[in-house]
């Protein structure tokens, strides 16, 4: 008890920190409540994402032709500022690992950070085990290309030319270097190419180079788009908070005008 009292007495928080913490806790509570609701009553309706539909659609062709599916996870890792983007890419890898193991479609993942490699290996291995085909996992399915963005992009582009996949999905953290693998993908007319990132300066490049770009926050909706009911709860919580923030901005602008 004394230790707890000592901890309490030596702890302080700024007014800004308190506001942010309260907002975070409210957001967490809303996510929890809506996720429970989604798992008990049923998932919330999700707007179809063109990129997810394209990837789903190409699975059948890959089964027939034996072509691999390729995911470029980008230059981000796990534990750095781009963790959320990398996890979004890994949710796509997870979906493909499950379906790929069942349908005997090889899934290739190329990445630039060793921490992302650990995640990719775990997801691919789990996909093969969960579906009952542990032998479907190969240690070289996930490949660490290079830790430097341009070297990673050049290596990934070359790999796409040497072994053209049925689909190339570039989902994760990317900069302008994404143009190199995207251009290599454009050179294969049969290849379905999708991409998504949260960096606003990279979005126009993906918009120009891919058939179905995931713009900004759409990247984080991939899990829900691939049928994860528990992800639809957090997606609904995001919508509620976005509406609240938008309302706050409009109200603030109107009040500022009135006061002026």
């Amino acid at each position: 008890m004394d230790l707890l009292r000592l901890l309490w007495e030596t702890t302080s928080i700024t007014p800004e920190g308190l506001t942010a913490l309260a907002g975070l806790l409210a957001f967490a509570a809303l996510i929890l409540a809506l996720t429970l609701r989604a798992s008990r009553v049923g998932p919330f309706a999700v707007r179809p994402l063109a990129a997810a539909e394209r990837v789903r659609g190409v699975l059948g062709r890959a089964m027939e032709t034996g072509e691999p599916l390729h995911v470029a996870l980008g230059i981000g890792g796990i534990g750095d500022v781009s963790t959320a983007d990398t996890l979004a890419g890994l949710s796509l890898v997870s979906f493909l690992a499950d379906r790929g193991a069942l349908a005997e479609v090889p899934v290739r993942v190329r990445l630039a950070q060793p921490t992302a490699l650990v995640g990719a290996i775990a997801v691919l291995q789990r996909g093969a085990e969960v579906t009952g085909y542990p032998e479907a996992y190969e240690p070289t399915q996930a490949a660490f290309v290079a830790p430097v963005p341009l070297a990673y992009a050049a290596g990934t582009a070359e790999a796409l030319r040497l072994e053209p996949p049925a689909a190339n999905a570039m989902v994760g953290a990317f900069g302008a270097e994404v143009l190199l693998p995207a251009q290599a993908g454009r050179e294969q007319p049969q290849m379905v190419q999708v991409g998504g990132t949260s960096d606003p300066s990279t979005l126009p490049l993906l918009f120009a180079m891919t058939e179905a770009p995931l713009l900004g926050e759409e990247v984080y909706a991939l899990g829900a788009a691939f049928g994860r009911a528990d992800h639809t709860g957090s997606l609904a919580a995001q919508d509620v908070f976005r509406a609240l923030v938008a309302f706050g901005i409009v109200l603030g602008a109107v009040l500022a005008l009135v006061i002026a």
Binding site: F27, I31, V219, A221, H231, F241
Partner: peptide, 10 residues
């Protein structure tokens, strides 16, 4: 909001 939701889900 997407980043916050991803972290909070974990």
């Amino acid at each position: 909001l997407g980043i916050m939701a991803t972290g909070l889900r974990v």
